[in-house]
């Protein structure tokens, strides 16, 4: 029952917040969508087209990301809200610029982590009436993480000379990722859109000796989004 309540709460919240990468057509004002970020993250997004004028559009979007199989960790999740603007030329070439900020919370064996970040993206490409093909160039910066350590974590430090287990604290600049991808989207007459991107995400420090996939660095970026526009 508790789990059901959590799922319902998440679904309700997701109708309020969300994000769509498919915000470049002269289509309905609203869209809700699901995005799968392989391998294990699920995004639920909402997009509102607040202004369209002369080949330009401004979207407000928001998204909740959840670890796909950690619904029981109902306090693990990430909320991203952002603003994007679409600028087109008469030859169907255009660019979408977007800025997002995010707040992520995670609970795990080492404690609880809260992270604040921002991302900026540029999507230059071809934007037709019912499909688009663009580049996704994005920088995603973790500005700060607040780490609240568990007793399990503190135990690693116990008994060592001149050592105290670290207190809960803000950790600054904990993460930066660059995303380079090609994205494609298509929308049908029932206003259902499908888009996917294929590319890589890089952390500058993941190169050389720090490249370490086993501890959470993936170089593959391949989100798949399905949205309904209304």
């Amino acid at each position: 029952m508790q789990r059901l309540a959590i799922v319902l709460i998440v679904m309700i919240i997701s109708r309020v917040f969300g994000m769509s990468n498919f915000g470049n057509q002269d289509i309905a004002k609203h869209s809700i969508g699901l995005t799968l970020y392989p391998p294990l993250l699920l995004g639920i997004d909402y997009n509102y087209r607040c202004q369209t004028q002369g080949g330009r559009a401004v979207d407000l979007h928001s998204e909740i990301q959840l670890p796909l199989f950690l619904i029981e960790h109902f306090d693990s999740g990430k909320l991203r809200v952002g603003l994007s603007t679409f600028l087109s030329s008469q030859s169907s070439l255009g660019v979408t610029l977007s800025a997002k900020t995010s707040l992520a919370v995670g609970r795990h064996i080492l404690g609880r982590t809260t992270a604040w970040g921002i991302s900026l993206a540029v999507h230059p490409g071809f934007y037709g009436d019912r499909r688009f093909l663009a580049l996704d160039l994005e920088i995603d910066v973790g500005l700060a993480s607040y780490l609240d350590h568990s007793d399990y974590h503190s135990a690693f430090f116990e008994g060592l000379p001149n050592v105290n287990a670290p207190d809960a604290s803000w950790y600054i600049f904990p993460n930066t990722r660059y995303i380079i991808a090609v994205e494609y989207g298509v929308i049908n007459r029932k206003q259902i859109s499908f888009s996917l991107a294929v590319g890589i995400q890089l952390s500058p420090q993941s190169q050389g000796i720090y490249f370490f996939p086993q501890v959470g660095i993936t170089s593959i970026y391949a989100p798949v989004n399905l949205s309904y526009h209304f």
Binding site: L40, K78, G106, G142, N175, T176
Partner: peptide, 8 residues
Amino acid sequence: VWNMEFLG
């Protein structure tokens, strides 16, 4: 996987 969101 989720901790990719927090630490690099």
